[in-house]
């Protein structure tokens, strides 16, 4: 099974990289951009056919390693 894990900074946590990208987009002539938040996309391939079990395992991976719950949130997307 394939899965995608989207990791993002919690809302309210300062994202200096997002701010820099926002600034660069303005400089490039995209003044309509109001805000940019940057995160990570982690793609996983795991040997598990049961979606519920796969999701539970990935939840644990997120808590233990893939995201830092102090400052990040995550969203799991099972692809197939």
């Amino acid at each position: 099974m394939k899965a995608k894990v989207h990791v993002a900074l919690k809302s309210g946590v300062l994202d200096p990289q997002g701010k820099a990208i926002n600034h660069a987009l303005h400089t490039l002539g995209f003044p309509a951009v109001r805000d940019v938040r940057q995160g990570k996309l982690i793609e996983l391939e795991i040997d598990e056919k049961d979606p519920a079990k796969a999701r539970a395992a990935i939840e644990e991976m997120c808590r233990k390693l893939l995201a830092n719950p102090v400052m990040e949130t995550y969203r799991i997307e099972l692809v197939e």
Partner: peptide, 11 residues
């Protein structure tokens, strides 16, 4: 330890 070390604000 509590908290986290994030990217420097000025990058």
């Amino acid at each position: 330890l509590p908290g986290a070390l994030m990217r420097n604000a000025h990058l």
